[in-house]
Amino acid sequence: MAVLHTTNKSPLQTRDLESCLRLTRPGSGILLMEDAVYGALRSTEASARLAQAAKDRRIYVLGPDLAARGFTPEEVIDEVEVVDYGGFVDLVAEHHHVQAWV
């Protein structure tokens, strides 16, 4: 059973997502929430890195956090799946444990 990682900081501003990627194994799930949702957008300096990480990890972004910040699911890179809080709960239940990259 894989592990779910949550990260909540913008990768354009901090290196938390980078640490998370360095220390997560292929097959892990990563949920971008709060300010980390900016990392899921197209055409940013972080987009390519995330698309590459998505090759062997499942990456999710929290839709309500995206909407709150003025972005729509259409503006998210194809490799990332948009979930709501119910989806967040399901992800936690489906993974062995959760590691928060706070």
């Binding site: 909540n8 929430m33 709060e34 300010d35 309500p64 709501d84 809080y85 119910g86 967040f88 709960v89 399901d90 239940a93």
Partner: peptide, 19 residues
């Protein structure tokens, strides 16, 4: 910080799903 809001929304969603 949004942490408490996020935790609250998570709790509401979890309870709604019967957890």
């Amino acid at each position: 910080h949004q942490a408490s809001d996020s935790a609250y929304q998570f709790a509401v969603a979890a309870l709604a799903k019967g957890h």
